[in-house]
Amino acid sequence: MRYRHKLIKSGGVWELLSYEKEVATGKDAVRENAGRKKQSDHDWINDAETKMKNRSDVLYRARKQVFNQANANANAWNEQPKFFTLTYAENMQDIKQSNYNFKKFIQRLNYTLKIKLKYTLDPTMDELTEIKTVVSEW
């Protein structure tokens, strides 16, 4: 099967994806020259750039999937997901300390509210190497 558009439903949210080239699946997805690529002498030049681009693409897809799952799960019980960002007033660069602080924050919040929150956590570093934590709660 080949397609250029894909419709994704996540809870009550619909998303239409359009592709420049056709996407092939199943029998149509048979590739020519399948298997390992032959490395040339110049592959090491683009290797760092390729790794950074691939890493960026993987992180984008992972975050997108988390948001879609949050929408699908939260809307299953007629609740709207809440997305918010936590940042530090000072420039925090230690990810272990940030995770510890967040864990303590959630424990105190659960104790105060007397409920157990369900959440997804996405710690990120911004351009200034400051840690930001995006939390989706449902």
Rank of each mutant, 00 (worst) to 15 (best):
L17V: 13
L121G: 00
I8E: 07
A48L: 07
S136M: 14
E79I: 08
V30M: 07
G35K: 10
L113K: 15
Y111T: 04
K6I: 01
D94T: 06
P123T: 04
K51D: 03
K118I: 09
L59Q: 14
N110Q: 04
I106C: 00
D57C: 02
L7W: 10
L7K: 11
Q80M: 12
G35R: 13
K118T: 13
K96T: 02
A76N: 14
K64S: 00
E90S: 14
P123M: 07
K37H: 09
V134N: 08
F102I: 00
P81I: 14
R4W: 09
K96W: 04
L59S: 07
S98L: 04
R4G: 06
L113I: 04
T124Q: 12
T124F: 01
N101D: 15
N46L: 10
L16W: 12
N46T: 14
I45C: 00
S10I: 00
Y111N: 08
D43V: 11
D126M: 08
T124I: 12
V134M: 08
S10C: 12
W44E: 07
I131C: 03
Q93I: 01
H42R: 03
F83K: 11
W77A: 06
R36F: 14
L59V: 04
N33R: 08
Q97H: 00
A24P: 02
L128A: 13
E79F: 10
F83H: 15
G26P: 03
Q69G: 03
F102P: 04
T85K: 14
K103P: 01
N73A: 05
Y3W: 10
K51Y: 05
E20F: 14
R4F: 09
Y119E: 04
Q97A: 11
K64F: 00
V58F: 02
G11N: 03
D122R: 06
K38S: 11
I106N: 06
N75A: 06
G11W: 05
A74F: 00
Y19I: 08
F102S: 03
L109F: 05
W77N: 05
K104A: 00
F67E: 13
E15D: 05
P123W: 02
D126T: 05
L113C: 04
L121W: 02
K53W: 07
F102K: 04
D43Y: 10
D41C: 01
V13L: 03
T133R: 15
K38Q: 13
N68C: 06
Q39M: 13
N54Q: 05
K21I: 09
H5L: 06
K118L: 11
N73F: 05
K51L: 09
R61Q: 04
M1F: 05
R108M: 07
D43G: 00
S40N: 13
L7M: 10
S40G: 15
I8D: 04
I95P: 02
L7S: 02
R31A: 12
K9Y: 05
K103S: 14
E49L: 09
A72E: 15
K82R: 13
E49I: 03
Q97S: 01
K21D: 13
E32R: 12
K96S: 10
E22Y: 11
S10F: 11
L17P: 02
K51V: 08
W77I: 12
